[in-house]
């Protein structure tokens, strides 16, 4: 198992390198640049000085090599738009907030999704199947940037139960987490239903019933392990989706996370901040995929020993 994890971690290095390279050139080659935003007219000599400071006048390949050298030392460079902190400091400040939001959203997704999906799978094509699955379809088709404002409209503005925005006390965190988690709850529900449905049709479930096990025990001990596999496999893409969802959700609810930071950086062409945020995302997604692989191997002995 350790060998498996190490091998996967090693394979991250070339992938990460490719991502860094692609992004670096994608961002730099595009027309326009920082310090040229419409609102802040910068005198040419100041601009020249700024470009010098941020190493933008060197040839592109030189900038690239310098960036890689810094990156290898864990230095993501200075922020070009918000110079009060370095990019690394910004990430350290903002990323935990996004992680917290993502964690709650995942919790919402897993709890609601599993409950709905398993309930539906137990009695297919009955009311307890149709109702949760209809909700799941609604959840998938309503984008988070629609759901968020609608939830605010109802629970914050009309009913006044929850705050409109912010990220200070626990109540603040309810609507953002729900907004971000709902769509994934819907996917999890569909996948869990499909997975359980398939497992429950297998011969070994009949064997378990023939042994006189109670239905609860059949489901918990025998079916669940195989039934959750599709959901586990979905966790990788879900993590990526939660990240992008956080852009919108953090925007709507004014959450001071990395997603908002990223969107602002994109608007302001803050090259270093943009790179920094995307690299954090890329590493996060790679790690998540690794975790998924490990869980899958742990759940299925055939993979583990195969």
């Amino acid at each position: 198992m350790t060998k498996f994890i190490l091998r996967r971690l090693l394979s991250f290095i070339p992938v990460f390198f490719i991502i860094v390279t692609m992004l670096f050139f994608l961002i730099r080659i595009a027309p326009g640049g920082p310090f040229q935003g419409g609102e802040r007219a910068v005198p040419p000599e100041v601009l020249e000085k700024l470009r010098e400071t941020y190493n933008l006048n060197a040839p592109l390949y030189r900038q690239y090599v310098d960036y890689l050298v810094d990156l290898a030392q864990g230095d993501l460079g200075p922020s070009m738009y918000q110079p009060s902190r370095t990019v690394t400091e910004w990430v350290q400040l903002r990323f935990p907030v996004s992680l917290e939001l993502g964690f709650y959203a995942l919790l919402v997704a897993m709890t609601l999704g599993f409950l709905a999906g398993i309930t539906a799978a137990l009695r297919p094509n009955t009311i307890t199947d149709y109702v949760p699955m209809s909700f799941a379809m609604v959840g998938i088709c309503i984008p988070n940037f629609v759901l968020g404002p609608v939830l605010v409209l109802i629970f914050a503005l009309k009913l006044g139960w929850l705050p409109v925005a912010g990220w200070a006390d626990p109540l603040d965190k309810v609507l953002p987490s729900l907004t971000l988690g709902t769509a994934y709850a819907a996917y999890v529900a569909r996948l869990a239903r499909g997975g359980m449905f398939e497992v429950l049709a297998q011969d070994f479930i009949r064997t378990a019933r023939a042994k006189g096990l109670s239905e609860t025990r059949v489901i918990l001990r025998h079916a669940l392990r195989g039934g959750v596999q599709p959901v586990i496999a979905f966790l990788g893409p879900a993590a990526a989706g939660l990240l992008t969802g956080s852009f919108v959700v953090e925007q709507i609810f004014q959450v001071p996370g990395l997603g908002k930071q990223f969107v602002d950086a994109a608007f302001n062409r803050d090259y270093t901040m943009l790179m920094g945020a995307v690299l954090v995302y890329a590493v996060l997604i790679l790690c998540f995929n690794l975790v998924v692989d490990v869980i899958q191997a742990w759940l299925d002995p055939r993979v583990r020993y195969g």
């Binding site: 992938v15 490719i18 991502i19 692609m22 992004l23 994608l26 961002i27 595009a30 027309p31 326009g32 990526a240 990240l243 992008t244 852009f247 990223f262 969107v263 994109a266 608007f267 062409r269 943009l274 995307v278 995302y281 890329a282 997604i285 790679l286 995929n289």
Partner: peptide, 20 residues
């Protein structure tokens, strides 16, 4: 496979910002 591990939406955002 490698492209799959890229954060897509991020790239679309970068592309749309820079491509005008």
């Amino acid at each position: 496979d490698i492209l799959y591990t890229m954060p897509f939406t991020v790239i679309v955002i970068i592309l749309t910002v820079y491509m005008g």
